[in-house]
Design a protein around this nucleic acid. Sequence first.
DNA 1: TTTAATTTTGGAAACGATTCCAAGGAGGCG
DNA 2: CGCCTCCTTGGAATCGTTTCCAAAATTAAA
Lengths: 333, 333
Amino acid sequence: MATISEIAKTAGVGVGTVSRYLNHRDTVSAAKQKQIQTAIEQLHYTPNAIASQLRAQSTNNIGVLVSRISNPFFAQLFDALERELHRYGFQVMVMQTHDDPEAERRFLDQLKQQQVDGVILASVENSDLLAQLAPTYAKQMVLLNEESLQVALPTVSLNHYQATWDALNYLYDQGHRRISYATGGNYPSTHHGRSRTQAYLDFCQAHGLIIDDQLIFAQQHTLTDGQQLGTKLSQLAPNLRPTAIFSNSDEVAVGLINQLQAQHFRVPDDIAVVGYDDQPFAKFAPVPLTTVRQPVLSMAQVAVDQLLHNLGKINTPALQPDLGLQLIIRKSA
Amino acid sequence: MATISEIAKTAGVGVGTVSRYLNHRDTVSAAKQKQIQTAIEQLHYTPNAIASQLRAQSTNNIGVLVSRISNPFFAQLFDALERELHRYGFQVMVMQTHDDPEAERRFLDQLKQQQVDGVILASVENSDLLAQLAPTYAKQMVLLNEESLQVALPTVSLNHYQATWDALNYLYDQGHRRISYATGGNYPSTHHGRSRTQAYLDFCQAHGLIIDDQLIFAQQHTLTDGQQLGTKLSQLAPNLRPTAIFSNSDEVAVGLINQLQAQHFRVPDDIAVVGYDDQPFAKFAPVPLTTVRQPVLSMAQVAVDQLLHNLGKINTPALQPDLGLQLIIRKSA
DNA sequence: TTTAATTTTGGAAACGATTCCAAGGAGGCG
DNA sequence: CGCCTCCTTGGAATCGTTTCCAAAATTAAA
């Protein structure tokens, strides 16, 4: 691998001059420009970003933490984040936690060692850890769709409480009184205060619906989880069976619908299903999915804006796109 | 940010000793170990990976190039690649080309500047470029699911020709004589020789089926593309309309089915649909999708194995998992 | 032509880690 | 007690870039 000083030697100039030429930092005489250029082509020179990052004390890399990139919601979100960050010349390093707090810790540590200029957390499993780590990251960290109670961090948050409430209300208005709830997180241990779960609990309480632990399902993430959930529901005694279920993930909802249909339940007539995210295939499900749409694009824009603003790379946080959540009514409820 | 020499100073030892301690490289006396450890905790030291990478002339980073991570097939593939690479202590940098040759060039260049130890190409748009770049990358490049005619590169390849042929044959056996074809690539310009397209053309020829450019659709990638394709098909005069369509992507297939149903066509009775990949939601489609399953896990394992072997990080290429493609017969054909 | 002002240039120092080498220290053996 | 061996240690050199500073070259002014 050719280095800058080899280029300098072959071109018969000093290293400083080559560097200046490469970065268009200062004027370099036309003659030397040509010499340098030919040397570069001759030796197939490629700058070593690592060295330059070390010297510059900045990498132009941003870390993004998601729970699982094969979750279409995160895929879309990552896509949008990347697009946005590229516009500002940043590169993105994505890491998946797979909902493992230990992996989360490890990856945050790795990102720090890699000297990323900032981190966007689109999924946090262990907010204690976060509180512990946050000070050392300071302003280069943005929470997207997550909130930390322990520590004040730049945060992009949507009103999931309200959206959940509205969705439940929609079900309630249609006469549902026995509503089940599926979440990706734990229950009841951690994150009890997470806004969606809280909204569910509050809603039930406010409307005098029984809160039955048998109707609350935790750690539900995938299509397969949804299928298994369907099996569980279908095995419940008819009088215990919910007439509707609110799922925090479209994936789970689709798997669920599939399994319910396989067991000859009708959706939404026997059991209504509401999902969350409005993932791309939601409207292509066996029963087009009624779901809460997350404004992925705006979320990404705001998060990046926020981050770059905190990094001093951008002046105006300016735009404040609509971060509203919207219930998309299709056929499943 | 604390550095290793600050640690050394606070602990009252030399930098070399700290480094040795950190890397468990040599024995360090118990007393100094304790001093160093306390200094580390006191100063919140985090090693600077950039510096160490510069010195070591190796980053332990592997680049992965895909066309679009929100394509569930690539998401799964990336997932598997990452899992596998983590096992060997590598980190993964993923980049999306969005099928843009220019982006491909740019990203490959960036990866090189970032000094990645290797690259796995799961999608290549411009194989001329590749031929041009490959020599400078030498052995640290693996083609996954792609082939380059111009240059010999380590390659993990499946028999897509055969799988396509088999799928078409399945349709043929069911009496279909007018079979449409949808691909993600271009047609007929580049990649004419790509094995799936070639198999289609050869199959038609071998069985005396007309090859009608009106039945061949290029640049089909997403659910939306599939929908639009459905509209196009439904607008064809009945005698021109295909009775079956083979799509190179499940996403397109699902969008297509959805739109066909919306236009009151029955799948598979009026039009049969075969997809490709067996993406996670394929069996949850409105009509469970008949599709060619790609062995994502094995593909990732073999690619990583191949790469690490070439890098000399691993001795035995050993395992040769089954890279067979399998037609999964469900309801759509 | 001389002097001053300006532009261009070369190269040393720095970024933070690792590794090599020489030297210091501990312990064993006679 | 002295000598040899082996283990532990400190610190200089190195990786490839950028930046700063002083010197050289060029241009402008007198």
